[in-house]
Amino acid sequence: MPSSLSNLRALGAAIILLFAFAYPAAAQLSFRPTAEAVQEDQLLNALQRGDKITGRITIPDTRASSLIQPAGRDWRDFQRSRLPIIGGVAIIGMVALLAIFLMVRGRIRVDHGFSGAKILRFAGFERFIHWLTASCFIVLALSGLNISFGRILILPLFGPEVFATMSVYAKFAHNYLAFPFMLGLVIMFLIWIKDNIPGKLDLEWIKQGGGILSAGKHPPAKRFNAGQKGIFWIVIIGGALMSVSGWFLIFPYLAATVTVLQFWTVIHAVIAMLFIAAMLAHIYIGSIGMEGAFDAMGTGEVDLNWAKEHHSLWVEEEQAKAHGPSDSTPRAVPAE
Protein backbone atom coordinates (compact mmCIF):
# COMPACT_ATOMS: atom_id res chain seq x y z
CA MET A 1 0.00 0.00 0.00
CA PRO A 2 2.72 2.50 0.88
CA SER A 3 4.34 1.46 -2.36
CA SER A 4 1.17 2.17 -4.39
CA LEU A 5 0.74 5.52 -2.61
CA SER A 6 4.29 6.41 -3.46
CA ASN A 7 3.67 5.49 -7.12
CA LEU A 8 0.55 7.66 -7.15
CA ARG A 9 2.53 10.63 -5.76
CA ALA A 10 5.22 10.11 -8.38
CA LEU A 11 2.60 10.03 -11.13
CA GLY A 12 1.03 13.23 -9.83
CA ALA A 13 4.36 14.97 -9.68
CA ALA A 14 5.12 13.85 -13.22
CA ILE A 15 1.80 15.24 -14.49
CA ILE A 16 2.40 18.57 -12.72
CA LEU A 17 5.91 18.76 -14.13
CA LEU A 18 4.59 17.92 -17.59
CA PHE A 19 2.10 20.81 -17.46
CA ALA A 20 4.69 23.11 -15.97
CA PHE A 21 7.03 22.60 -18.96
CA ALA A 22 4.37 22.08 -21.62
CA TYR A 23 2.42 25.29 -20.97
CA PRO A 24 5.22 27.72 -21.77
CA ALA A 25 6.03 25.68 -24.84
CA ALA A 26 2.42 25.89 -26.03
CA ALA A 27 2.32 29.60 -25.23
CA GLN A 28 5.57 30.14 -27.23
CA LEU A 29 4.16 28.18 -30.17
CA SER A 30 1.09 30.40 -30.32
CA PHE A 31 3.29 33.53 -30.59
CA ARG A 32 5.82 32.13 -33.02
CA PRO A 33 4.54 33.79 -36.27
CA THR A 34 4.63 37.23 -34.71
CA ALA A 35 7.98 36.56 -33.10
CA GLU A 36 9.42 35.36 -36.42
CA ALA A 37 8.01 38.38 -38.24
CA VAL A 38 9.79 40.63 -35.78
CA GLN A 39 12.97 38.65 -36.21
CA GLU A 40 12.67 38.87 -40.02
CA ASP A 41 12.27 42.62 -39.83
CA GLN A 42 15.27 42.84 -37.56
CA LEU A 43 17.16 40.59 -39.97
CA LEU A 44 16.34 42.84 -42.92
CA ASN A 45 17.39 45.91 -41.01
CA ALA A 46 20.56 44.22 -39.93
CA LEU A 47 21.59 43.33 -43.48
CA GLN A 48 24.38 45.51 -44.68
CA ARG A 49 24.47 47.06 -48.14
CA GLY A 50 25.33 44.43 -50.70
CA ASP A 51 24.33 41.62 -48.38
CA LYS A 52 21.44 39.43 -49.32
CA ILE A 53 19.40 36.46 -48.17
CA THR A 54 20.00 33.45 -50.36
CA GLY A 55 18.28 30.12 -50.75
CA ARG A 56 19.24 26.80 -52.30
CA ILE A 57 18.38 26.19 -55.95
CA THR A 58 19.01 23.44 -58.48
CA ILE A 59 18.97 25.38 -61.78
CA PRO A 60 22.33 26.34 -63.32
CA ASP A 61 21.92 30.11 -62.86
CA THR A 62 23.31 30.49 -59.33
CA ARG A 63 22.26 34.15 -59.13
CA ALA A 64 18.65 33.00 -58.96
CA SER A 65 19.37 31.90 -55.39
CA SER A 66 19.16 35.53 -54.21
CA LEU A 67 15.88 35.79 -52.33
CA ILE A 68 16.05 39.19 -50.68
CA GLN A 69 18.50 41.97 -51.47
CA PRO A 70 17.70 45.13 -49.49
CA ALA A 71 20.12 47.22 -51.62
CA GLY A 72 17.69 46.72 -54.49
CA ARG A 73 15.24 49.05 -52.79
CA ASP A 74 17.84 51.84 -52.76
CA TRP A 75 18.51 51.19 -56.43
CA ARG A 76 14.79 51.35 -57.25
CA ASP A 77 14.37 54.56 -55.26
CA PHE A 78 17.31 56.08 -57.13
CA GLN A 79 15.83 55.16 -60.51
CA ARG A 80 12.44 56.59 -59.64
CA SER A 81 13.27 59.69 -57.65
CA ARG A 82 16.86 60.95 -57.81
CA LEU A 83 17.69 60.03 -61.42
CA PRO A 84 14.80 62.06 -62.97
CA ILE A 85 15.96 65.03 -60.89
CA ILE A 86 19.58 64.67 -62.08
CA GLY A 87 18.39 64.29 -65.67
CA GLY A 88 15.91 67.13 -65.44
CA VAL A 89 18.44 69.54 -63.96
CA ALA A 90 21.16 68.57 -66.48
CA ILE A 91 19.01 68.66 -69.62
CA ILE A 92 16.55 71.44 -68.82
CA GLY A 93 19.40 73.41 -67.22
CA MET A 94 21.48 73.11 -70.39
CA VAL A 95 18.56 74.18 -72.60
CA ALA A 96 17.99 77.17 -70.32
CA LEU A 97 21.70 78.11 -70.38
CA LEU A 98 21.81 77.91 -74.17
CA ALA A 99 18.66 80.00 -74.47
CA ILE A 100 20.14 82.65 -72.16
CA PHE A 101 23.43 82.55 -74.09
CA LEU A 102 21.57 83.02 -77.39
CA MET A 103 19.59 85.93 -75.99
CA VAL A 104 22.65 87.65 -74.48
CA ARG A 105 25.34 86.90 -77.09
CA GLY A 106 23.20 86.22 -80.15
CA ARG A 107 24.48 84.15 -83.07
CA ILE A 108 28.24 84.18 -83.42
CA ARG A 109 28.74 85.84 -86.78
CA VAL A 110 31.67 85.74 -89.19
CA ASP A 111 33.26 89.10 -88.32
CA HIS A 112 34.66 89.72 -91.80
CA GLY A 113 31.66 88.30 -93.60
CA PHE A 114 31.63 85.33 -95.96
CA SER A 115 34.49 85.47 -98.45
CA GLY A 116 32.97 83.16 -101.01
CA ALA A 117 36.09 80.98 -100.97
CA LYS A 118 35.73 77.50 -99.48
CA ILE A 119 38.13 75.20 -97.72
CA LEU A 120 37.61 71.49 -97.17
CA ARG A 121 37.11 70.90 -93.44
CA PHE A 122 35.86 67.32 -93.29
CA ALA A 123 36.19 64.60 -95.92
CA GLY A 124 33.20 62.47 -96.90
CA PHE A 125 34.24 59.52 -94.72
CA GLU A 126 34.64 61.75 -91.66
CA ARG A 127 31.16 63.19 -92.16
CA PHE A 128 29.74 59.71 -92.74
CA ILE A 129 31.13 58.52 -89.41
CA HIS A 130 29.96 61.70 -87.65
CA TRP A 131 26.39 61.31 -88.93
CA LEU A 132 26.38 57.56 -88.29
CA THR A 133 27.26 58.17 -84.65
CA ALA A 134 25.05 61.26 -84.35
CA SER A 135 21.91 59.68 -85.85
CA CYS A 136 22.30 56.62 -83.62
CA PHE A 137 22.89 58.89 -80.63
CA ILE A 138 19.66 60.82 -81.21
CA VAL A 139 17.58 57.62 -81.31
CA LEU A 140 19.47 56.21 -78.31
CA ALA A 141 18.95 59.43 -76.36
CA LEU A 142 15.23 59.72 -77.10
CA SER A 143 14.53 56.04 -76.43
CA GLY A 144 16.64 56.22 -73.28
CA LEU A 145 14.86 59.32 -72.02
CA ASN A 146 11.60 57.47 -72.58
CA ILE A 147 12.70 54.94 -69.97
CA SER A 148 13.34 57.66 -67.37
CA PHE A 149 10.64 60.19 -68.23
CA GLY A 150 8.17 58.38 -70.49
CA ARG A 151 5.99 57.19 -67.65
CA ILE A 152 5.65 60.76 -66.38
CA LEU A 153 5.45 62.67 -69.67
CA ILE A 154 4.19 60.37 -72.45
CA LEU A 155 1.98 57.82 -70.70
CA PRO A 156 -0.62 60.39 -69.55
CA LEU A 157 -0.76 61.90 -73.06
CA PHE A 158 -1.21 58.77 -75.17
CA GLY A 159 -2.43 56.10 -72.78
CA PRO A 160 -0.95 52.75 -71.78
CA GLU A 161 -1.46 50.89 -75.10
CA VAL A 162 0.34 53.45 -77.25
CA PHE A 163 3.02 54.01 -74.61
CA ALA A 164 3.68 50.30 -74.18
CA THR A 165 3.91 49.61 -77.93
CA MET A 166 6.10 52.66 -78.50
CA SER A 167 8.36 51.71 -75.61
CA VAL A 168 8.84 48.17 -76.88
CA TYR A 169 9.95 49.38 -80.32
CA ALA A 170 12.05 52.12 -78.72
CA LYS A 171 13.81 49.45 -76.66
CA PHE A 172 14.52 47.35 -79.78
CA ALA A 173 15.92 50.45 -81.52
CA HIS A 174 17.98 51.28 -78.41
CA ASN A 175 19.47 47.80 -78.12
CA TYR A 176 20.35 47.33 -81.79
CA LEU A 177 21.39 50.88 -82.78
CA ALA A 178 23.85 50.75 -79.89
CA PHE A 179 26.11 48.61 -82.09
CA PRO A 180 26.53 51.01 -85.05
CA PHE A 181 26.92 53.76 -82.43
CA MET A 182 29.81 51.88 -80.83
CA LEU A 183 31.34 51.27 -84.26
CA GLY A 184 31.13 54.98 -85.05
CA LEU A 185 32.68 55.80 -81.70
CA VAL A 186 35.70 53.59 -82.30
CA ILE A 187 36.28 54.95 -85.81
CA MET A 188 35.88 58.57 -84.65
CA PHE A 189 38.46 57.93 -81.96
CA LEU A 190 40.91 56.50 -84.49
CA ILE A 191 40.54 59.20 -87.17
CA TRP A 192 40.43 62.27 -84.89
CA ILE A 193 42.63 61.38 -81.91
CA LYS A 194 45.74 62.91 -83.54
CA ASP A 195 44.07 66.33 -83.78
CA ASN A 196 42.57 66.21 -80.28
CA ILE A 197 45.60 65.89 -78.04
CA PRO A 198 45.42 68.79 -75.54
CA GLY A 199 48.26 71.31 -75.76
CA LYS A 200 49.46 74.71 -74.48
CA LEU A 201 47.53 76.45 -77.23
CA ASP A 202 44.31 75.17 -75.69
CA LEU A 203 45.05 76.94 -72.40
CA GLU A 204 45.26 80.27 -74.22
CA TRP A 205 42.03 79.48 -76.05
CA ILE A 206 40.29 78.73 -72.75
CA LYS A 207 41.74 81.91 -71.15
CA GLN A 208 40.16 83.95 -73.92
CA GLY A 209 36.85 82.11 -73.58
CA GLY A 210 37.30 80.73 -77.07
CA GLY A 211 36.51 84.13 -78.46
CA ILE A 212 32.84 83.28 -78.35
CA LEU A 213 31.98 85.48 -75.40
CA SER A 214 32.67 88.73 -77.25
CA ALA A 215 32.77 89.62 -80.94
CA GLY A 216 36.06 90.29 -82.71
CA LYS A 217 38.26 88.09 -80.50
CA HIS A 218 39.56 84.91 -82.08
CA PRO A 219 42.28 82.99 -80.26
CA PRO A 220 44.44 80.92 -82.61
CA ALA A 221 43.54 77.27 -83.01
CA LYS A 222 44.63 74.32 -85.07
CA ARG A 223 42.16 71.89 -86.64
CA PHE A 224 40.20 71.53 -83.39
CA ASN A 225 40.07 74.21 -80.71
CA ALA A 226 39.91 73.46 -76.97
CA GLY A 227 36.11 73.47 -76.97
CA GLN A 228 35.95 70.94 -79.78
CA LYS A 229 38.60 68.84 -78.08
CA GLY A 230 36.47 68.90 -74.95
CA ILE A 231 33.48 67.65 -76.92
CA PHE A 232 35.65 64.98 -78.53
CA TRP A 233 36.79 63.61 -75.17
CA ILE A 234 33.29 63.84 -73.69
CA VAL A 235 32.05 61.75 -76.62
CA ILE A 236 34.89 59.24 -76.38
CA ILE A 237 34.94 58.82 -72.59
CA GLY A 238 31.19 59.21 -72.16
CA GLY A 239 30.56 56.92 -75.13
CA ALA A 240 32.98 54.31 -73.76
CA LEU A 241 31.23 54.34 -70.37
CA MET A 242 27.84 54.12 -72.07
CA SER A 243 29.10 51.23 -74.20
CA VAL A 244 30.58 49.21 -71.34
CA SER A 245 27.58 49.78 -69.08
CA GLY A 246 25.18 49.17 -71.97
CA TRP A 247 26.92 45.89 -72.73
CA PHE A 248 26.07 44.70 -69.21
CA LEU A 249 22.46 45.80 -69.70
CA ILE A 250 22.06 43.94 -72.99
CA PHE A 251 23.86 40.87 -71.66
CA PRO A 252 22.96 40.89 -67.94
CA TYR A 253 24.44 37.45 -67.32
CA LEU A 254 27.91 38.99 -67.78
CA ALA A 255 27.58 40.70 -64.40
CA ALA A 256 28.86 38.57 -61.55
CA THR A 257 26.11 39.67 -59.17
CA VAL A 258 22.89 41.65 -59.20
CA THR A 259 24.72 44.43 -57.33
CA VAL A 260 27.23 44.74 -60.18
CA LEU A 261 24.36 44.93 -62.66
CA GLN A 262 22.67 47.63 -60.61
CA PHE A 263 25.94 49.58 -60.49
CA TRP A 264 26.20 49.59 -64.29
CA THR A 265 22.56 50.64 -64.72
CA VAL A 266 23.23 53.65 -62.50
CA ILE A 267 26.41 54.51 -64.45
CA HIS A 268 24.49 54.12 -67.74
CA ALA A 269 21.66 56.37 -66.61
CA VAL A 270 23.72 59.14 -65.01
CA ILE A 271 26.31 59.35 -67.80
CA ALA A 272 23.45 59.34 -70.34
CA MET A 273 21.87 62.42 -68.78
CA LEU A 274 25.18 64.32 -68.70
CA PHE A 275 26.07 63.11 -72.19
CA ILE A 276 22.76 64.35 -73.61
CA ALA A 277 23.21 67.72 -71.91
CA ALA A 278 26.73 68.07 -73.38
CA MET A 279 25.53 67.08 -76.85
CA LEU A 280 22.80 69.73 -76.70
CA ALA A 281 25.57 72.32 -76.38
CA HIS A 282 27.45 70.71 -79.28
CA ILE A 283 24.32 70.69 -81.48
CA TYR A 284 23.59 74.30 -80.56
CA ILE A 285 27.04 75.66 -81.43
CA GLY A 286 27.17 73.57 -84.59
CA SER A 287 23.85 74.87 -85.90
CA ILE A 288 22.06 78.02 -84.77
CA GLY A 289 24.73 79.16 -82.33
CA MET A 290 27.49 79.88 -84.85
CA GLU A 291 27.07 81.18 -88.35
CA GLY A 292 28.76 78.98 -90.97
CA ALA A 293 29.59 76.14 -88.55
CA PHE A 294 27.04 73.64 -89.87
CA ASP A 295 28.70 73.64 -93.32
CA ALA A 296 31.63 71.74 -91.83
CA MET A 297 29.48 68.65 -91.35
CA GLY A 298 26.85 69.63 -93.94
CA THR A 299 28.81 69.93 -97.16
CA GLY A 300 32.24 69.39 -95.64
CA GLU A 301 33.47 72.79 -96.89
CA VAL A 302 33.50 75.96 -94.79
CA ASP A 303 33.97 79.57 -95.77
CA LEU A 304 37.61 80.63 -95.72
CA ASN A 305 36.92 83.64 -93.48
CA TRP A 306 35.09 81.43 -91.00
CA ALA A 307 38.03 79.03 -90.98
CA LYS A 308 40.57 81.86 -90.56
CA GLU A 309 38.65 83.28 -87.61
CA HIS A 310 38.10 80.01 -85.72
CA HIS A 311 41.00 77.81 -86.89
CA SER A 312 43.68 80.24 -88.09
CA LEU A 313 46.66 77.90 -87.59
CA TRP A 314 44.88 75.03 -89.31
CA VAL A 315 44.17 77.24 -92.36
CA GLU A 316 47.84 78.19 -92.52
CA GLU A 317 48.81 74.51 -92.40
CA GLU A 318 46.32 73.59 -95.12
CA GLN A 319 47.38 76.44 -97.38
CA ALA A 320 51.03 75.53 -96.88
CA LYS A 321 50.20 71.95 -97.87
CA ALA A 322 48.25 73.15 -100.90
CA HIS A 323 51.16 75.21 -102.12
CA GLY A 324 53.81 72.73 -101.10
CA PRO A 325 55.68 70.57 -103.63
CA SER A 326 54.36 67.31 -102.15
CA ASP A 327 50.69 68.06 -102.74
CA SER A 328 49.56 69.66 -105.94
CA THR A 329 45.85 69.62 -105.07
CA PRO A 330 44.69 72.98 -103.70
CA ARG A 331 42.60 72.55 -100.56
CA ALA A 332 41.06 76.03 -100.60
CA VAL A 333 39.02 76.70 -103.67
CA PRO A 334 36.90 79.67 -104.61
CA ALA A 335 33.16 79.14 -104.47
CA GLU A 336 31.40 79.01 -107.82
Binding site: R127, F128, W131, S135, C136, A173, N175, Y176, F179, L183
Partner: peptide, 22 residues
Protein backbone atom coordinates in the same frame (compact mmCIF):
# COMPACT_ATOMS: atom_id res chain seq x y z
CA UNK B 1 23.93 62.20 -99.46
CA UNK B 2 26.46 61.42 -96.74
CA UNK B 3 23.82 61.89 -94.04
CA UNK B 4 21.33 59.59 -95.82
CA UNK B 5 24.06 57.01 -96.39
CA UNK B 6 25.02 57.13 -92.70
CA UNK B 7 21.42 56.68 -91.54
CA UNK B 8 20.87 53.84 -94.03
CA UNK B 9 24.05 52.14 -92.82
CA UNK B 10 22.94 52.51 -89.20
CA UNK B 11 19.59 50.86 -89.96
CA UNK B 12 21.19 48.03 -91.94
CA UNK B 13 23.80 47.46 -89.23
CA UNK B 14 21.13 47.43 -86.50
CA UNK B 15 19.01 44.90 -88.42
CA UNK B 16 22.11 42.78 -89.01
CA UNK B 17 23.00 42.84 -85.32
CA UNK B 18 19.42 41.95 -84.41
CA UNK B 19 19.51 38.93 -86.72
CA UNK B 20 22.88 37.74 -85.39
CA UNK B 21 21.87 38.16 -81.73
CA UNK B 22 18.52 36.47 -82.27
Amino acid sequence: KVFVAAVAFAVVAAVGVAMVLN
